[in-house]
Design a protein around this nucleic acid. Structure first.
Lengths: 106, 106
DNA sequence: TATATTCGCAACCTAAAAGTTGCGTAATTA
DNA sequence: TAATTACGCAACTTTTAGGTTGCGAATATA
């Protein structure tokens, strides 16, 4: 089951995990303490985040610190890039012109 | 059922719809022709996108043109902003330092 | 060595999401 | 006015996701 970054960030708990470890790497137990959820529940979210490489494990004895992977988040940033032109004013005005033309040609 | 923008873009078909109408407003039928899916299937995706205001309807006779709403997509852009510092080199180096300190204090 | 701790994996349950078919309504066209 | 077209809504089915409990493996501690 290869996970997808869009699917990964669709869950509120997973977004909270990302926000936490973007500041500092944490173990599953440390994360679980932040949420009203069993450790195993958190562990499943970790698995999803790890499969799509948004986080990466660093073993330290019997503990595992999960680190945030900014590179993967940049992929999302790249996807949004296609819409940036839509919120630049001059292109919104162009959209207006196109709409008007469409109505005229009928 | 109030929809969430993260949930909305988690589906590949909905992302494809957004990509299409970011360029030009389309009717449900026009969208359905692009996908191997029933019109009603597409219509359900439209409903999700509309509920979270990523798209907006414009009635024209018996047709409805759906327009992309860039403002809402900017909310996603704002969410990503919290991670931008993570992919700037100097902060990655700081992360390295923090990791080293953590190991030392044990 | 015995015990406790950290964690991943598998099985299971329940809720929600994706997709279908069928139908009713409103606007267009013959 | 009758037929067609565009669409949303409701009901239904199947798949997937989120969550739990229970277990075993590996590391740390007494």
């Amino acid at each position: 089951m290869k996970q997808d970054i869009f699917q990964a960030i669709s869950d509120p708990t997973r977004r909270a995990i990302l926000t936490l470890i973007a500041i500092q790497a944490l173990t599953p137990n440390a994360m679980a303490e932040k949420f009203e959820m069993s450790r195993q529940g958190v562990s499943k979210h970790i698995k999803v985040l790890q499969e799509c490489e948004l986080i990466r494990p660093e073993q330290s004895g019997r503990e595992i610190y999960y680190h945030f992977n900014p590179k993967k988040m940049q992929e999302l940033d790249n996807w949004i890039a296609q819409f940036r032109k839509n919120w630049e004013t001059q292109f919104n005005q162009l959209d207006q012109v196109l709409s008007t033309l469409k109505k005229t040609e009928k």
